[in-house]
């Protein structure tokens, strides 16, 4: 009796997977597959509409345009993996950038020293977020909402609201904007390279080290992680601090990219970085997602902007398309999370 029952049950288990469920299972294991699929579709669609989209020069340009948001999205991914969120991304970046630039303006300070101070300031800002989240036990949303205003205000007060052009800055600060590769061909900047290196380094740390595992564990179930012996407070503190460092490097990339340090340079950085993370398949509830997904997500957002503008579509429609994509991405995430064993 029991034997027939168990084979019948095994039969049932084998039979029950519909194609849709199988897709759900695969996506559950590889959450970055669906954004990759969207990216490929977008690529093909835009190339058919306008062959110039796929030309080497526009590909290089697109990577350059993606670099800053893609960099910010690394820090955002780390924080969202711990079930947090960082609304102060843009503010920290701008603050760091304005301090670097102001210090080194017109030969005021050694470029290297100014860069170092700017980076340290970004690290300190991230650390402050981390301290507020861990020691005062405040929700990350509230903490970073507060520091968003604080850092933005400080950046504006410090810089007096005016921007500093590249020709007033030392070479080191502009260096990431310099490129290589043929003119009119596939051309990259050192900023793109720097962002690529950051993806490799953080991706390695997340997938290959104990720290990475702990980041996922803390985001998935903080109490269980604590009971298992994970130093949850320390993991959170390092995540916010490392995110700060990444924003600082992004500030350096941004100076090179925009050829100036402007206080209102990246107004939409907060939302764009969150969008890239979410479209990339990382769950806002924490503990689930891959950094490669974030890179794909950032590329999707940028190719949508770039492709639609090549097609002459109005800016507002591009924003609208991004919004629709975010909602679809989160719905897909919710669906994937309901996967059955």
């Amino acid at each position: 009796m029991t034997a027939t029952q168990s084979t019948a049950a095994a039969e049932f288990a084998r039979r029950q997977q519909s194609p849709l469920q199988r897709i759900q299972h695969v996506l559950h294991g590889y959450p970055w597959l669906s954004p990759l699929f969207i990216l490929v579709i977008a690529f093909i669609a835009f190339t058919t509409l306008n062959p110039r989209f796929a030309s080497p020069s526009s590909m290089g340009l697109m990577l350059q345009q993606t670099a800053v948001v893609a960099a910010l999205a690394i820090g955002q991914t780390l924080i969202i993996l711990t079930a947090g969120i960082d609304l102060s991304v843009g503010a920290i970046t701008v603050l760091s950038m304005m301090v670097m630039a102001s210090l080194a303006q017109d030969g005021g300070m050694n470029g290297f020293l100014a860069l170092l101070i700017g980076l340290l300031l970004a690290v300190a800002a991230g650390y402050l977020n981390g301290v507020l989240v861990t020691r005062l036990n405040l929700p990350p949303f509230i903490v970073t909402l507060g520091t968003l205003s604080i850092f933005t205000a400080i950046a504006l007060l410090y810089s007096g609201g005016s921007s500093i052009q590249a020709d007033h800055l030392p070479g080191l600060l502009n260096s990431l904007g310099e490129g290589f590769g043929p003119r009119g061909g596939f051309r990259l900047t050192w900023g793109v390279v720097a962002v690529g290196v950051m993806y490799l380094a953080v991706g390695f740390a997340l997938s290959q080290t104990a720290w990475g595992r702990h980041v996922y564990a803390v985001g998935d179930d903080r109490e269980a992680a604590r009971l298992s012996g994970v130093a949850t407070q320390r993991v959170l503190l390092t995540v916010y601090t490392v995110a700060g460092l990444i924003y600082g490097i992004a500030a350096w990339v941004l100076i090179g990219r925009s050829g100036a340090a402007t206080p209102n340079a990246i107004v939409d950085a907060n939302l764009n970085s969150i969008t890239a993370v979410v479209i990339g398949g990382t769950s806002l509830f924490g503990g689930r997602g891959r950094l490669v997904g974030t890179l794909i997500g950032a590329l999707i957002v940028q190719s949508l902007q770039f492709g639609l503008s090549l097609g002459g579509v109005d800016q507002q429609f591009r924003v609208l398309a991004t919004g629709v994509l975010v909602i679809i991405a989160v719905s897909v995430d919710q669906w994937i999370r309901k996967v059955k064993a």
């Binding site: 996922y216 992680a225 298992s228």
Partner: peptide, 24 residues
């Protein structure tokens, strides 16, 4: 072993067994 199942759902079994005691 705690009442509230102190395991991490998103990690695999081996990772859970070695959580906070990972070997390099």
């Amino acid at each position: 072993v705690y009442q509230q199942l102190a395991v991490i759902p998103a990690l695999d079994i081996a990772s859970n067994l070695y959580l906070a005691r990972e070997e390099r």
